[in-house]
Amino acid sequence: MLLSSDDVTAIWLTLKLASLVTCLLIIVSTPIAWWLARTQSWLKGPINAIVAMPLILPPTVLGFYLLLFLGPQGSLGKWLGNIGISLPFSFEGLVIASMVYSLPFVVQPIQNAFAAMGERPLEAAATLRSSPWDSFIHIALPLAKPGYISAAVLGFAHTVGEFGVVLMIGGNISNETRVISIQIYDHVEALEYGQAHTLSLLMIAFAFIALALLYSLQKRSKSTSLIGSL
């Protein structure tokens, strides 16, 4: 076996982190995406920009401010400290940081899917005595399914690939915050190129499979896309 037990631990930790972050992000992103896709408020531009900022900012900047914010002197960190919770350099802190880091990758596909279906299916549902909530569950969510699949794949893959944010706020604690990318960094620092290769090639294979899956799904959903045929 080419992988050390530390490598396997890092892989499991990474998968656990990415799965949890993706699930939480899908829940958090749905109302944001719904609002952004339908609002005519002037706040749409600024909120869109805030959601998209992690796309541009260096992860170190995000990590730096999250560290200050969540740290013992930070506004949230202080309050959490009072009830005995400390987030920096913990798995939970990493989950929160990763959610911020991957937010645009989950919000935007869902937002696009909601925008693409337009007003009509919801109007039709309303004339069929379907309440707004009923229409959302039975019409909007199923119609946005391709967007949700893209969002899940992108959110998961992007979380697996993070490094800078982890380094700033997670540190390097085995089975707590030492994810694959940190483990590779450690191997390279220790000149263990063989092990660095193994993990890196795994990451390349994973990235390829995730993107290939995504594009083939998108292509299929376009050819059978019903949104256009409404």
Partner: peptide, 20 residues
């Protein structure tokens, strides 16, 4: 009275069936 509480049926110019 919101649309979904009005006792109406509505046929749009485009059929607007639910595609799923």
């Amino acid at each position: 009275l919101p649309t979904h509480q009005r006792p109406i049926g509505y046929v749009f110019q485009e059929a607007s069936l639910f595609p799923h």
